[in-house]
Amino acid sequence: MPQPVDIVQKLSLVTEQWSPKVVARLNDYEIKVVKVQGEFVWHSHDDTDELFLVVDGVLTIQLHDGDVVLHPGQLYVVPKGVEHCPIADGEVHAVLIEPSGVANTGSAGGDRTAAYDDSLSSSAR
């Protein structure tokens, strides 16, 4: 029988910063959990929007035309093609929703690109 996904429990298993883990799938989308702290890289996703939902902590999404500050229970959708840079003064726990196969660094690439990880998904393919 299918079981609900406990986001807080899945986040407790995450040990690496800036390395999203797939916890579920919805059609061609993946629901990922991630822990972040510090500043990421400026990047964009040319072909897709990116949803950030904060579970714990405060996340700032830096944009060229003004920052968006997210508190627990708040979400923001970065439109496709918009360059952005997440930053967190303290550790933040978040959920990301994006199409399957999207790299966390988008078009920027580089050494901060996380390896694909669906080990926390009960429906790992």
Rank of each mutant, 00 (worst) to 15 (best):
P2K: 10
P4F: 06
P4R: 00
P4H: 06
D6V: 06
D6Y: 04
I7L: 15
V8H: 11
K10S: 08
K10G: 08
S12Y: 03
L13A: 15
L13N: 13
V14L: 05
V14F: 03
T15S: 15
T15D: 15
E16A: 14
Q17P: 12
Q17I: 09
Q17S: 12
W18V: 13
W18R: 11
P20S: 07
V22N: 01
V23I: 13
A24L: 07
R25I: 03
L26G: 05
L26K: 05
D28G: 07
D28W: 02
D28L: 02
D28K: 09
Y29P: 01
Y29E: 09
Y29V: 00
Y29G: 00
Y29C: 03
E30F: 07
I31C: 08
K32I: 04
V34L: 14
K35I: 04
V36N: 04
G38I: 08
G38V: 09
V41E: 11
V41L: 13
H43T: 07
H43W: 06
S44P: 02
S44C: 11
H45K: 09
H45Y: 06
D46M: 08
D46N: 14
D47S: 10
D49R: 02
E50M: 00
E50K: 04
L51C: 04
L51R: 01
D56E: 15
L59A: 04
L59C: 06
T60E: 10
T60I: 10
T60K: 11
T60G: 04
I61K: 05
Q62W: 02
L63S: 06
H64R: 13
D67C: 07
V68G: 09
G73K: 06
G73I: 07
Q74T: 01
Q74S: 03
Q74E: 15
V78Q: 01
C85H: 04
I87Y: 05
I87D: 00
I87W: 05
A88T: 02
D89H: 11
G90E: 15
G90L: 05
H93D: 11
A94E: 14
V95P: 02
V95E: 01
V95C: 01
L96S: 03
I97R: 00
I97M: 14
P99K: 04
G101N: 10
T105P: 08
T105L: 05
G106C: 12
G106V: 12
S107T: 12
A108P: 03
G110P: 10
Y116F: 15
D117H: 05
S121A: 15
S121V: 08
S123M: 13
S123R: 14
